[in-house]
Structures are given as C-alpha cells and as structure tokens.
Design a protein around this nucleic acid. Structure first.
Length: 911
RNA sequence: GGGCCAUUAGCUCAGCUGGCUAGAGCGCUACGUUGACAUCGUAGAGGUCGCAGGUUCAAGUCCUACAUGGCCCACCA
C-alpha cells in the first residue's frame, strides 16, 4: 500500500525543498476512497460499536462557504478520530432540495433562457426542469466537501426529495394527521409577495427601518366635525380597517367607546372598542384595527368579533376592496391614499419613526401578513419530549449555553405553518372529494377513486407542497430507511454527534428531536448501554462558531465580503484551511477571519513536512523497534520526548472526546513545534553527527516512534499531509499496513511523567539562560567566542557521567565549547542548573554598563516578586486555609525566584 | 422590553472548577542561513486584564451595578 501510494505521489515524495499540497491532495483522496475506509468498518471483536454523524445537508443550490468549511472540518475531525479509535464510524452525506431556493434558481434560469414563467410550462414540466437542473448542478457542493477532505460514506448519499425520503415524509404526515396534530385553516400568515408563498415565523427577519408615522383623522359618526386621530405606519391598509381601539381608561375617548367612526374614502362604518393592549402614550392613543393585515390587529379583531377584510392580492397589490386604489402595488397605494386623505384634510401630520419591518429570509422582500388557507402542525404536544430530552441530560449542547435558546423556543413554540405555495417539494399527501373533504393518504389516490370516509369520488389533490424542513426534520432516521425497520436503522440510530450553525437550532435541530421522539419506534433502533432514550436522534449537538469577516460582520453575498474556502484551499491547501479554522475557533465563539489567517496553518503544515523530511533523511536502513520502557533509553531527551508524547496523546484524546477541538489542535501545535522540533530534533542532530552509533540508533527509533504517533494524532486535523508522510515513512522502513486513515489511534507507551521531566526542564532553562547571556553580550555582528565550564562538584561518579553528557547536550544547543574547570573565569556571566554551572567569558567589547542595567532591572523585579511570595507565605490565613498542594507550590516558586535572584546577583558581582 | 455573548500586549485571541512574576500567533526590535524548515532559528521589547463597588487570606478568574460593541427573541400601531 505505502509503496503504491508513494509511487503515485512520485515526485512530491522526493521530499523536495518545500511542500506543495496541490500535488497530492487529489491522489490521496482517491486512495482513501478506493481503500473503502469511508464506509463503516464491519462489527467485530475489535470494534467499539457504531458511531454516526448525519451531515446537515447543504442546499443543492449551495456553494461551500466558510461556515460549511468549519462545520465539515469539525465533523471530519470527529469521524476520523472515532474511526481510528475503533468505532464503526459512519458519516452520512446528502443534500437538501431547499424548496424555495432551488425553485427560484430554476425560475430565474427559465426566465433568462426562454423568457418563460413557470406557469407557462405547467407544474409537471417545471418540476422536471428542476430535476434536470439538480442532476446537472446538484453535486457541486459535495465535490467541494471532498476537496476539504471530508471522509463521508458517499455510497450512502441521500437527497431530501428522493423516493425513500418521500415515503418517510408521507408516513410522518399521515401519522400526525391521524393523531389530529395537523389542521388546515385560514390564519394570518407571513406572505412573501415576490415568491408568492407563505413562509413560517422562523423564516422572517425583523429589520429596523426609518419610516414615518402618519396621523390620520377618522370622522366620528353622529358628531359632525369631530374626528378621532389614529397613528399608523401603514396608511395603505386603512381600506381594510374594521375598527379603532382605545385604552379603556383613556379619558380622551371615554365618551366614544361603543360609538362608530366613518372610515374615510370608502365610508365604512367601524366601531370604537376599548382594549387594554393599547398604549395610551403611543401616538394618539387610538389605533386602527386591520385584522386582515396585522398580527396584533388580528388578535384584537378576534376579541371584538370584527370582520376581516383582506385588501391585498398574492403579489402585493390592492385588491377590489381598495376601491379606487385597486390594482396599485402597495407602495404606490400608500402615496395615493395619503394624497387622497390630504385632499380631504384628513392627514393631521406625520413624524419620523424607527420601527421593525418583517423581511423574508428568502426573497428579502417585505413580508405582508395576510389571511390565507394553510396547513399547520400543532407543536405543543411534540415539544414536550424534546424539552424533556434536554432536561434529563439525554441531549447535550456544546457549548452548553445554547440549551437555553433551544428550550425558550420550545416552551413558547407556536404552530408550524407547513404548506408552501410552490411546485418544488413534497406535495401534500391530501386529497379532496367533491365537497372538499380532505383525506391524508400514504399512497397516491387516483382521481375518481372513492374517498375512504365520505365514499364520494376524489376530485383533486392539494396543490401545495410541504415546507422543506418538513422533510429535513426526518433526516436522522429517514436516511437510514425509516419507516422500514431496516438493518441500518437498527445499527446506526440514534447518532452520537450533530454539528451545525446556531441559526437553525429552531428550524432544524429542535424539530429533528421532536420527530425522533414522535416517529421512531424504540424496537427498530439500537439500544444504548446506559439506557438513554433511543428515540432521541443524537446525544450531542455542537453549535459551531459563526465565521465573520475581519471587521466582525457576517459574511454575505450582498456585502461581497465572503472568503471562498475553495480559493483558500487552492492557495494554502485543505490541511492549512482546516487547521487554521480550528486554531481560530474557540468554544463556538465567533471568529473574525481574513485570508492571511490561513498562513498559520500553512506554516504549521510546512513545519510538519520538514520535520518529517529530517527524520526520513536520517533513517539509514530500518531502525529497530523502540523499547516501551523509557528507563532503557540512554539519553535523557529520549525519555523526555516519549513522556511528552504520552502527555500530549492523553490531552488530545480527552479534548477530542469532549469536543474541544481548539484545545486539541493547540496542544498538538505546541508539542510538534516546541517540543519535538525545537528540542528533540535539535538534540538528535548532535547525536547523528557527534556521538556513537548506539545513541544515533536509539534516536532513530525514538524519532520513528514519536513521529508516527504524532502523524496519527494530527491526522484528523490535517488528513492529507499526515497520510502522505505516513506513506513515505512506512515505505522507507519497508513496513506494510493500512493507510493512516484506517490505522488505529495511538496508545500510550511508558509513563507520562518521571524524574527525567525535571532534569530536561532544567537543561532547557540552562540553555535558555546561556542563549540569553549570549544575546545580551553580543557585540557588533559576531558573538564572542564562549566556553562552557563544568564545575566538578559532584562526588558521585554516576552523577558526574550524567552531567558530562548533559554538558555536551548544553554545549551543543548553545554552540559553546566545553572546557572543564572548577573556577569561574574573570569577567564572565554565569548560569546554573542543578550541580552544573556554565560560565560565559565576556568579550572586552561588551558594554558592561548596559548589561548591568538590564540585570539590575531584572533583579529589582525579582526582588519584588520574592517579597510578594514571602508576604503570602507569612500570611497565616493562607497557610491555614489554602490547599496543601497550593502552599507547597508556592514554596517551590519562592525557591525558584530566590535562586534566580541569587544568580543575577552573582552575575552582577562577577562583571 | 427580555435574554445571551464579548470587552486581557499595536492586531486577532487563549487563560477550565479563584493561587499569575498574565500566555499564544501575527506585527515590532536585535542577531543568526555551507543539508528538516528564512514558509526558519535565537533572544528581546510590549498588558495597573472596560469602569465602580463587593465576597475572600487571595480575583483576569466569583457576585452586583454601569459603560461600549455584537447576536437572538418580543404584536407597540
């Protein structure tokens, strides 16, 4: 396998100077695909059971944006980690038919290419046209997901409008119908006048606008000359007024309650009613009631039994109720009506007002509340178990704060308008007889067949289609074959992890939970070991960060401030894009992004590449296996790096298990860059060139072991580069085995901590101190030639040898010459680690006063730090009450500061 | 009107259940390239942790109020 892959990667694996992701990403993806690794492994004694993620299906019309890139990176990290960790990992992909969006795209295309409206084609031909479009363009976004490296099981790709989904949708609809949870009625709904369909409450957005508040005079019946002034932002709807409300205690209008006004222009007689929802302080304290076009007025109309007058057509024009204004678009009608009222002296004044206007998420046009016949789902009964799921802890949000958002919506849930006046979607499975008595059916009813209840002939099917979410809310189980009790359903449901954007918590997440509890039969699905309710579709919902532009604004098409992930992948490579996103994203906090932010991930990839290149270049033949026992390692750094590897493995594994991706990535970044490259690799260089073969051989073994584990840990984050390097490494070693993607997650070997940790840390401190001295004493362009001196104070022979080796190490890293001596040379700087002292003779060119200044400043700082610690330790309350561990740590810290101060003092004294 | 989140180095952000001489990346300064990497290395400068109170032996970390910015819910016409 590795040989083949390396052959395929050919030139790139020559390990040339730089690494170029473009050269191997496509090859590797194809290799993964053909390895069969995307499909869940077969259950067996070695597996940990199924682990399932259902992708939030992107719209077929969709183009990958940064939110997708982030979200799918997260899912891929989880699924790759679980796959390596021994689970039967399934990540099921698919797309959403996205009723409104897709229909709009095809309508636009039709208009542009043929100059036709959809009505000209007719329903069947138009839908066929959309399917054609879907076949041609509907896989684009899935291709983009592949570019990212997503390891979905493509053989299971689903589409929300396909045959199986359709069956599920009907089943769900009919079940709700049979339980009486679906009803049809004339209600005030949000009407999109551009798309000419109803939309649900969750698909509108309130936008603050500068507008005018108009004061209109309505004449009082029976009191010539007297008028009541109402304040309104929507004068054009006045022709639909069927009443005026005032507050019951409002003295200004007290005598008029129960009386009537004459609606100007159309002379309708409307009552004055008292309603305590009226705010006497706003406007004039009198509000016109337009039950047909305002949600609040609709309620008032119901309360006072006022007639509903609809004045708008489906495309937002005034209808015949508008009298002389009939046929005018709403904006035009507004000015015309105002002009007419003005003419009669009925406009008292107008003032500026900021208020909220509902805008359609889809067409961005102003939503008109209008009364129309729609289908609704009663949500209250469905919400109860979904609330319980979270309260019982069965379902958990990450970050946790989103649970409140979810619960608030569910507690106040309103009925869901599920019918849409579109053609692209699941047609509502309801048929009517000649008296319009409806019947919901799982199978198509022939026209002319008998209505099962009324026994009269069926004459038509409902024209409307279902809201897109009324199919995608079945996604977690419908994709596995529900309502049929399939083997997949029994194996992969419920899922473990869902990751999505916060703005579809209501639209999608909450509804999926409701659907799971409502439709899934526990005996058809997998029982969980801990007895958790198997109907709940997932256990963890991850709400990922929102990706903003560099100024903190949402990325949007209209602003043109989006950063195209594919463009970034082309430029930096998929690994860099993935890793950068994770590095920038902390606990679902919003992230400000600019293209140059991908640099960090790219440079990290480069670092990994070059470090691996070094290891590979120094593998002379196959090194022996590394012993699992660090005690047998001959060099301190061997034991240290193995321990650091173990510690990193432990924290990365824990972070991944808890879905703290940023923590895991940061941990890996620091380990690879700061521990492995900066220290271990540097030390290994010395062993390859300056010491004997035994030491070099051990170093090789450790390098191979640590590098391969590191590549494995990094693989979920940066799958391409790690896979390529894994192949190169194994090829070089002549090893066989599966691709990294299909390899096991590393296991801990040896202890994570030990005495060598402290020893290595003190060497590091010493080396830093020497470097610091060198940097400070540098004169001109060249550093003075310095010497390392080992003080032979240790009587113990073994200790001496160890120190000798340590001295070599330090000398190597500090680029010093080793001279053994017990005396401190005159005019020298000194650094100390344990029993070793290092002296750096100062060149006569060194500006001593400047150097002393720096040291004195440090000493002053150190002294005050020491004082602070002493004060703390002298505090009886602290010693008494604080944790013993904390007190001990504080004592240790005191000692460190004291030693450091002492050292600085010695330095000053010797200059 | 209700709720949530932010406010820490020039910039972007970490800092979990209170113990910090407050960290990272970028940027900046000085120095350093004859084989892992200049897409790099070494060293360094740079923060009274938004403001005011409070709890505590101890507060960037907890509580309260306020300020600023952002997001989400909500029928003020």
């Amino acid at each position: 396998m590795h040989r083949t892959l390396c052959a395929l990667l050919g030139t790139t694996m020559e390990l040339g100077k730089t690494f170029d992701p473009k050269l191997y990403e496509a090859t590797l993806y194809a290799a993964w695909q053909s390895s069969g690794g995307f499909a869940p492994r077969a259950p067996g004694p070695g597996t940990k059971g199924p682990f399932t993620i259902m992708i939030p299906p992107p719209n077929v019309t969709g183009v990958l944006h940064m939110g997708h890139a982030l979200n799918n990176t997260i899912q891929d990290i989880v699924i790759r980690h679980r796959r390596m960790d021994g689970y039967e990992a399934l990540w099921l992909p698919g797309t959403d038919h996205a009723g409104i969006a897709t229909q709009a795209v095809v309508e636009k295309k039709l208009q542009k290419e043929q100059g036709k409206k959809r009505e000209a084609l007719g329903r069947e031909a138009f839908v066929a046209e959309v399917w054609k479009w879907k076949e041609e363009h509907g896989t684009a976004i899935l291709e983009q997901l592949r570019r990212l490296g997503s390891s979905c099981d493509w053989s299971r790709t689903r589409f929300t409008l396909e045959e199986d989904m359709s069956r599920a949708v009907r089943e769900a609809f009919v079940r709700l119908w049979e339980k009486g949870l679906i009803y049809r009625g004339a209600r005030l709904v949000n009407w999109d006048c551009v798309l000419e369909t109803a939309v649900s409450d969750d698909e509108i957005e309130m936008v603050t606008r500068k507008d005018k508040l108009y004061y209109l005079r309505y004449p009082v019946e029976g009191h010539t000359g007297r008028t009541v002034t109402v304040a309104t932002t929507r004068p054009e709807t006045m022709v639909g007024d069927t009443g005026v409300a005032v507050h019951p205690t409002d003295a200004r209008y007290h005598d008029l309650i129960g009386g009537h006004l004459i609606l100007p222009l159309i002379s309708r007689r409307i009552p004055i009613v008292a309603d305590d929802t009226v705010d006497p302080k706003f406007g004039t304290g009198a509000v016109k009631i337009t039950p047909g076009h305002d949600p609040a007025d609709y309620e008032r109309g119901q309360r006072f039994n006022l007639p509903i007058v609809s004045v708008l057509t489906k495309d937002g024009k005034l209808n015949e109720e508008g009298g002389p204004f009939a046929g005018m678009p709403r904006e035009k009608a507004r000015t015309a009506i105002l002009a007419a009222l003005e003419e009669h002296g009925l406009v008292e004044k107008s003032e500026d007002l900021e208020h909220n206007v509902p805008i359609s998420d889809r067409s961005k046009s102003v939503i008109e509340p209008i009364v129309s016949e729609q289908w609704f789902v009663r949500m209250q009964p469905l919400a109860a178990p979904a609330i319980e799921a979270v309260e019982s802890g069965r379902l958990r949000f990450v970050p946790e704060r989103w649970t409140k958002v979810y619960l608030d919506w569910l507690v106040n849930v309103r009925d869901w308008c599920i019918s849409r006046q579109l053609w692209w979607g699941h047609r509502i499975p309801v048929w009517y007889d000649e008296d319009s008595v409806p019947f919901a059916s799982r199978t198509d009813l022939e026209l002319g067949s008998i209505h099962p209840i009324t026994k009269k002939p069926i004459v038509r099917q409902d024209e409307d289609v279902l809201d897109t979410w009324a199919s995608s809310y079945l996604w977690p189980f419908a994709t596995l074959g529900w309502p049929k009790p399939t083997a997949d359903l029994a194996r992969f449901y419920p899922t473990q992890f869902l990751s999505t954007a916060r703005d579809i918590i209501y639209l999608w997440v909450a509804r999926m939970v409701m659907a799971g509890y409502e439709f899934v039969d526990p005996k058809d699905v997998r029982k969980s070991a801990d007895g958790a309710d198997p109907r709940c579709p997932f256990s963890v919902v991850n709400i990922h960060a929102t990706v903003l532009d560099a100024q903190g604004r949402r990325m949007s098409k209209s602003l043109g401030n989006g950063i195209d992930p594919i463009e970034m992948i082309d430029k930096y490579g998929a690994d860099a894009v993935r890793f950068s996103l994770i590095l920038l994203t902390n606990e679902g906090q919003d992230v400000k992004l600019s293209p140059d932010r991908f640099d960090q991930g790219f440079r990290f990839g480069n670092k990994v590449w070059n470090a691996s290149k070094f290891v590979l270049a120094n593998l002379d033949g196959a090194p022996g296996e590394v012993s699992a026992d660090p005690a047998s390692f001959e060099a301190l750094e061997d034991q240290w790096i193995v321990a650091r590897r173990n510690a990193t493995l432990a924290s990365v594994s824990a972070a991944l298990d808890e879905y703290r991706f940023n923590d895991a990535a940061t941990e890996l970044y620091a380990f690879i860059w700061n521990d492995f490259c900066d220290w271990y690799l540097e030390l290994a260089k010395g062993r390859f060139t300056t010491t004997g073969t035994e030491s070099a051989r051990t170093a090789r073994g450790v390098l191979v072991s640590v590098l391969s584990d590191t590549l494995a840990m990094l693989h979920p984050f940066m799958p391409y580069i790690t896979e390529a390097l894994w192949a190169a490494l194994h090829e070089k070693l002549g090893r066989t085995g599966p691709m990294l993607m299909n390899s096991p997650w590393p296991t801990s070997r040896g202890a994570a901590a030990g005495p060598w940790m402290e020893a290595m840390e003190s060497i590091q401190a010493l080396v830093r101190a020497v470097r610091n001295v060198r940097a400070m004493t540098m004169v001109g362009e060249r550093a003075p030639l310095a010497a390392l001196v080992v003080a032979k104070r240790a009587s113990d022979r073994e200790l001496l040898t160890r120190h000798q080796k340590t001295a070599t190490t330090i000398a190597f890293l500090s680029e010093l010459r080793v001279v053994e001596s017990a005396e401190r040379p005159p005019a020298s700087a000194v650094a100390v680690a344990g029993a070793i002292e290092v002296f750096v003779p100062l060149s006569s060119d060194v500006d001593l006063s400047k150097l002393k200044d720096v040291l004195e400043r440090r000493l002053a700082k150190g002294k005050s730090a020491l004082e602070a610690v002493d004060k703390k330790l002298a505090n009886a309350a602290f010693v008494e009450k604080a944790d013993a561990q904390i007190v001990a740590a504080e004592r240790q810290r005191r000692e460190e500061i004291r030693l450091e101060n002492e050292l600085i003092a010695r330095n000053l004294a010797g200059m």
